[in-house]
Simulated assay, not measured.
Amino acid sequence: MNPHPPVTSDTSKAVTPQALREQYEGGATVDELVTASGLSYGTVLNRLHDAGTVMRTSWQTRRMRQNPQARQRLAARLRTLYEQHGATLTELATAAGETRRGARRLLIEAGGTVRTTHQTLRMRTAARAAERHKLAVSLRGRYEAGATVPELAREHSYSVATVYRLLHQAGTPMRPQHNHGPTRREGQRP
């Protein structure tokens, strides 16, 4: 036995396909039309199709209901993160509270172009090299101002060997090493 018989009153006939289409195109969902009209889900869908309604996906409905200016700002922010900071689609999705597909869609809406994984790796490698060069130049400046290699290593939490390598990469002229041990007299063995 059917607990909810279909609605066959005059009100169901008063809800015309064109009226449903106008409400749907105004942003209402099928579920909302079902609730408002008292019609079954299938009847609402059939009437929408009869009226020639172009159906939306759920993400298109969400996008339609969002504040367009807020969406544009979010898309622009994601594009900046993607293009200038080398963020991945996964990182964009986390920043936007979206899925990877949603983040990709926002990026494209903002005029961005999606990179390949290889391009992202290359971009990140270049960024790391630039940061390392910047650090090497900074260490050179401190070294030439009188700081010692062990002091620089402690300040930056690097090994002494890493600091030497960075100083050499920056083309730093090294100071002569001094023997800080006890003085040796001539004729004594080392």
Rank of each mutant, 00 (worst) to 15 (best):
Y24F: 13
Y24K: 05
E25V: 08
E25N: 14
G27N: 07
T29R: 13
T29C: 07
V30Y: 03
D31G: 10
E32H: 03
L33S: 04
L33R: 02
L33P: 09
V34N: 06
V34P: 07
V34T: 12
T35H: 14
A36Y: 02
L39D: 05
L39T: 01
S40P: 01
Y41D: 11
Y41K: 14
T43M: 11
L45R: 15
N46S: 11
N46C: 04
N46H: 10
L48P: 07
H49Y: 12
G52S: 08
G52K: 09
T53L: 08
V54S: 12
V54E: 11
V54M: 07
M55R: 14
R56M: 10
R56Q: 12
T57A: 12
T57N: 04
W59V: 11
W59C: 03
T61Y: 07
T61L: 13
T61Q: 10
R62Q: 13
R63C: 13
M64K: 14
Q66A: 14
Q66D: 10
N67F: 06
Q69H: 11
Q69K: 11
A70N: 03
A70I: 01
R71F: 03
Q72H: 12
Q72Y: 08
R73L: 09
L74W: 01
L74N: 00
L74P: 01
A75R: 00
R77F: 02
L78I: 05
R79Y: 00
R79S: 08
T80C: 04
Y82E: 06
Y82H: 05
Q84P: 00
G86C: 09
G86A: 14
G86R: 10
T88P: 02
L89H: 01
T90G: 09
A93Q: 07
A93L: 06
A93I: 05
T94S: 12
T94I: 05
T94A: 15
T94E: 15
A95C: 10
A95L: 05
A95Q: 12
A95K: 11
G97K: 05
T99N: 08
T99D: 09
T99V: 10
R100D: 12
